[in-house]
């Protein structure tokens, strides 16, 4: 079991690095969206600071959604997914590894870059740890929930729009809690409650989403 997890991780890693363009796309999108805001609304620090939590979170959310559309598509088209479904190994475990790998190269990279953009949007340094924490707990939820939608739309041509329609409503609690934590921190209020709720969602989606993703893929493959 441990062996297959490791081999799958290596496979995903190789595939990702052989197409570095796909790897960078969501991060470039994230960076562009955030850096356009100060240009559009003006450099007034007070205004930027008020907007910062929302801007960073919306950018992270859209970047994740954008990158998830193709998560299972190529494996579906070349028949790899059929072999996964047929394998005696649990499909839910394999998709969990795949989604976590995706989060490592997309979500975690955004968490690492976020302080830089936080400073750019005039967030005080004391708020940056909370910004990182909220993204660290929230982006895995975005990846896992999005993967459920990606699995359900895997066999559909032009499933991107449908994916957004399916998944955006589910993203809203994460968005509210994530930005809420940063807002609270900006006003000097405790953020433990928000962090606990986000952690709760992360654990819930880590444990339940793989089962839903596997079920979605089974339906997709049988079409």
């Amino acid at each position: 079991m441990r062996r297959i997890v490791w081999l799958l991780f290596c496979r995903e890693w190789r595939l990702a690095w052989r197409r570095p363009g796909d790897l960078l796309n969501p991060l470039v999108f994230f960076a562009i969206v955030i850096s356009l805001f100060p240009l559009a609304v003006g450099p007034e620090p007070g205004m930027l600071r008020t907007m910062a939590p929302g801007v960073i979170w919306v950018a992270a959310l859209l970047a994740t959604l954008l990158s998830l559309d193709g998560l299972f598509r190529s494996d579906y088209e070349d028949g790899s997914l059929e072999q996964w479904v047929l394998s005696p190994h649990p499909l839910a475990l394999m998709v969990l590894v795949k989604v976590l790998h995706h989060w490592l190269i997309c979500g975690l990279a955004m968490v690492v870059l976020a302080p830089l953009f936080g400073l750019m949007l005039a967030l005080p340094a004391s708020v940056l740890p909370v910004l990182c924490l909220s993204l660290l707990l929230g982006t895995p939820v975005l990846s896992l929930l999005g993967a459920v939608g990606a699995a359900l739309t895997v066999g559909l041509k032009g499933g991107g729009v449908l994916l957004a329609l399916l998944i955006l409503p589910l993203y809203i609690p994460v968005l509210i809690l994530g930005t809420g934590a940063i807002d609270a921190s900006l006003q000097g209020m405790p953020v433990t409650g928000y962090a606990l709720w986000l952690g709760c969602l992360a654990v819930l989606s880590l444990s339940l989403a793989p089962i839903a993703i596997a079920a979605g893929l089974r339906i997709g493959v049988s079409e």
Partner: peptide, 25 residues
């Protein structure tokens, strides 16, 4: 089962493809 689509990843080498496909069982 080997289906219509050969489950061969274009960006992996033949050896990498086979080692993964066999590892599935």
């Amino acid at each position: 089962f080997i289906g219509h689509a050969p489950a061969v990843k274009a960006n992996l080498t033949a050896e990498e493809n086979l080692s993964w496909l066999c590892a599935l069982s």
